[in-house]
């Protein structure tokens, strides 16, 4: 593995088909930079993507990658990491993939605390299917399938993560390239499940949660002197529905990742070319 990896090494030669101006460009650039800045290269990195606009990311990045089934990216990532502790695993998804069809897996991935990062491109809309409400859409957000708004409160993914026993919760904004990259880097370097919810505006179908909206309202927690190790402060930030925050909101410095308490260290791809030497002992157990 070379030590002079540049973030463009993580870029494939496929041109993204995201709409011009889509937040996912910035989100992906930050992910690539963060991977390079943390000493990874494409041959030791595995990216898992789900379905939706966000799911296209595996095509536009260059690394080992699997573009899977809608909502199931997190279990795939967990499987890769358990089998290959030597590989850096990053899972990418969207608000539909992660908080709707995949919400069951999200909760359990958080509490399982496998050492990998999870970057969610949250645009509060279903973009790929041309503009229906997502689980993070506002309750009065009018769409083709919710003409009067969903009339149900949006999912608070950060609260869901906290309630599930998260050890790292962060939020970033695709347009703030430097902060977004730093935050994803912190998620990668966290010993455990590093979760980043990224405000990644959809310029085509969401005229409410726009770049301007986030620029005007976003509060940067690090500028505010927020201490991410303080659980109660983190809880207050997460439950504050009046503001939008970016930064590392919560980090448990004593996080013990899954692989550590399960003693996973072996590269499981390496096996002998016959049965294990002492395998007849397994048969003799049945005497």
């Amino acid at each position: 593995m070379s030590s002079d990896v540049r973030f463009t090494d993580f870029k494939s030669d496929k041109q993204p088909t995201w709409c011009p101006g889509c937040g996912d460009f910035g989100t992906m650039n930050g992910m690539m930079k963060a991977l390079a800045n943390t000493g990874n290269d494409p041959d030791n990195t595995f990216v898992v993507a789900g379905i939706g606009c966000s799911g296209k990311i595996g095509t536009y990045m260059h690394s080992y990658a699997l573009h899977g089934v809608h909502g199931r990216a997190l279990p795939v990532g967990a499987g890769v990491k358990m089998a290959r502790p030597d590989i850096e695993v990053m899972v990418a998804g969207g608000d539909g993939d992660g908080y709707s069809i995949g919400s069951g897996h999200f909760i359990h991935a958080v509490r399982r605390n496998v050492d990998m990062s999870y970057v969610v491109m949250d645009n509060r809309i279903y973009g790929l299917t041309k503009g229906q409400a997502s689980p993070t859409s506002r309750s009065d957000f009018e769409t083709s399938t919710t003409p009067e708004g969903p009339k149900q409160p949006p999912v608070n993914p950060l609260a869901l993560a906290l309630a599930s026993g998260a050890t790292f919760i962060a939020q970033s904004f695709a347009s703030d390239a430097m902060r977004h990259t730093e935050i994803v880097e912190a998620a990668i370097e966290h010993d455990g499940f590093g979760f980043v919810n990224v405000f990644s505006p959809c310029v085509t179908f969401n005229d409410v949660d726009t770049y301007d909206y986030f620029r005007d309202t976003l509060v940067d927690l690090q500028e505010e002197g927020h201490d991410p190790n303080d659980y109660d402060d983190a809880k207050d930030v997460i439950l504050d529905s009046d503001k939008e925050y970016q930064g590392v909101i919560y980090q448990d410095d004593e996080s013990v990742p899954y692989g550590q308490h399960q003693n996973l260290g072996a590269n499981m791809s390496e096996i002998p070319d016959g049965a294990p030497e002492d395998a007849m002992d397994l048969v003799r157990e049945f005497y």
């Binding site: 899977g68 279990p75 795939v76 499987g79 358990m82 089998a83 897996h105 359990h108 590269n267």
Partner: peptide
């Protein structure tokens, strides 16, 4: 390693992930 997943959807996807890793 044996892992008890949250459901069968997750179980097969974890197994798939491990296989992508070469296990």
């Amino acid at each position: 390693h044996v892992v008890q997943a949250e459901d069968e959807l997750s179980a097969i996807n974890m197994a798939l992930g491990a296989a992508r890793g070469g296990a």
